[in-house]
Amino acid sequence: MKKLLSFFPALLALVLLSNFVDGPAGYQVGDKVTDFKLKNVDGKTVSLADNKAAKGYIVVFTCNTCPYAKAYESRIIELHQKYAPQGYPVVAINPNDPAVAPGDSFADMKARAASKKYPFPYLQDETQQVARTYGATRTPHLYVVTRRGSDFVVSYIGAIDDNSEDAKQVKTRYVEQAMTDILAGKPAATSSTKAIGCTIKWKKA
């Protein structure tokens, strides 16, 4: 036992080090999420708890400046139009530091949301804490969360579909496939997918 205890600090150091190397992992499917309070483009703050009628949310980390985010913009609006009536509205979060990505300032977000008539909140993650907690790495990066009582649990993480360039050529709609399962009260058969995107513009230390 004593031997084991003397070994423990080394082991702890190793675990900490490997955590550091891999970076924070963020949420996995099945994890309970911590609610946030972020400023919307209309000036009000938004939390997941606000909408008592929501069965869940489609949380999308996205931005003004990334070509992939722009390519998916109208598809994100369509997701909201399809799933908000079924209890899963979209919540868009911009995690980019405007100092690094000047087109992602709050004023630019307001302008974008107005010109594209976003039917969902477009929130600024000013401290980038929400993106870090979720483990978001890129825009767009999508999470479906499902209500469990007063909590929300991650049901799906990943891609929107299999063709970013051309919506007409899409064969597999990953998030819609997952939503079909989730709305039927089942775990998503494919609950985790990957996509190319722009790296989140983290604040320079």
């Binding site: 890129r138 891609a159 997918t193 990957k194 996509a195 790296t199």
Partner: peptide, 16 residues
Amino acid sequence: PNTYLEKVDPKWSGAL
């Protein structure tokens, strides 16, 4: 990308 990112490296989430 979902068909190949994992094969390039499991740690690659897809950001460039």
